[in-house]
Amino acid sequence: MSKVLVEIDWTGLALAGGCVAATLVIALIERLRMGREVAIGGIRAFAQLMLAGYAVGWLLGRDYWWANLLAVAVMILVATLVVLGRLRRGAFPGMASAVLLSVCAGALPVLAYAMIAVVRPRPLHAARYLIPIGSMVISRAMNSTVLVMDRLVSDLRRQRGRVEAALALGASARRAAEPFVRAAYRAGMLPTINTLYAVGLVHLPGMMTGQIIGGVEAWQAAKYQIVIMYLLLASAVLCAFAATRAVVASLLAGHRLHV
C-alpha cells in the first residue's frame, strides 16, 4: 500500500464546497426553506474544522500534558452545552449538573482505560491518540446522554399515572421507574449496538477510512476501529447508567414524581 498521502489543496477544498452550493440550489428550486440552515451549516463546518485542525496541530506540535487535558475538558464542556440545548424543552431541576455528570461518566473512565490499558501510547497523554479517541468517546457520551435523558424524562411525564400507581403500592423511586429506565437504556445503546452489527459490512467508519487514507495498513486500521467500537459501547452504557440515575434522583426525589 502506498504511504504517500494525497493532500487536499485549496482548489480541492473549494470544489468540495461546490457540493454545498449544489445543495443550496436544489433547496432553492424545490422551495425547501432550508437554504439558511444549509448555508450556515456549511460555513460552520468549515470554520469549526479549520479551527479544530489548527488546534489539534498546535497540540500535536507541543504535546504539553496540561494543554491536552484542557482540550478534553473543553470538549466535555461543549458537549454538555450541546446536550443542554437539545434537552431545553424537557428541562428538569438540576439538569445541568446531571448532564455534566452523565457526559463525564460516559467519557472519562473509557478514555482513561483506552489510554492506560488498551492503546498505551508514550507519553500516555500523547495528543495524537488522546484527542481523536477523546473526541469520539465524548461525542458518543453526548449523543447517548441526549437519547437517554430525552426518553426517560418524556416517559416519566407521559406515564405519570403508571409511575404513581407503583409508588402508591410502596415501590421505591427506582423500582417505579424501572420499565422506563430500561427503555431509556435501549434508546441510548441501540444506535451503538446497531453499528456493531453493520460495521465493516455496510460502511467503513470514519476512523478506519481516515487511517487507510492516511496510509496505515488496513488490518491495523481495522484493529483500531474494533477498539473504538468497543470503547463506544462502554461509553454508551456508562452514560445510560449515570443519566438514568440522575434523572430518577431529580424527578423522583423523595419517592414523589416532580413533573
Partner: peptide, 11 residues
C-alpha cells in the same frame, strides 16, 4: 393505601 380516581393498570 391510595387508590386514584382512574387507576392505571400495570402490564
Amino acid at each position: 393505601a391510595f387508590v386514584a380516581q382512574e387507576p392505571v393498570m400495570l402490564d
